[in-house]
């Protein structure tokens, strides 16, 4: 039954990958990559169960963290052109 779930995850990965390659705008591609990240987390978790090694869950947890930060970072890069503090961020330490 784990293999059934893994097959479903692979099919969905192929579909989102197609959207990432087709997607007319950069936002389509980012959305698809974001979903792909979620699917990767699921794949790692289910694969851990299939192999009988639940230690894989730690990797899935870390991947979930990284995938979210990756999406936000790429988004920020496309919005502002660099990864430094954007115009909306202001450090008001000196004023305190």
């Amino acid at each position: 039954m784990f293999s059934a779930a893994i097959i479903a995850i692979f099919i969905t990965m192929a579909l989102t990958l197609a959207r990432a390659l087709l997607g007319p705008t950069v936002y389509d591609r980012l959305l698809a990559v974001n979903s792909f990240g979620t699917l990767t987390v699921l794949l790692i978790a289910v694969h851990g169960f299939l192999m009988g090694r639940p230690a894989f869950l730690d990797i899935a947890l870390v991947y979930a963290l990284i995938s979210f930060i990756g999406t936000i970072a790429v988004l920020k890069f496309f919005e502002y052109g660099d990864l430094g503090p954007g115009e909306r961020v202001s450090f008001d330490e000196e004023q305190e």
């Binding site: 099919i11 969905t12 197609a18 087709l22 997607g23 389509d28």
Partner: peptide
């Protein structure tokens, strides 16, 4: 079993939707 299979179904449905729907906001 039921949870894993229906979860897989919703995953594939979501994937199909991302290909079928017409623009970014609907996707």
């Amino acid at each position: 079993w039921a949870c894993l299979l229906s979860g897989g179904f919703f995953l594939v449905a979501g994937g199909i939707g991302m290909l079928r729907l017409p623009d970014f906001y609907t996707r």
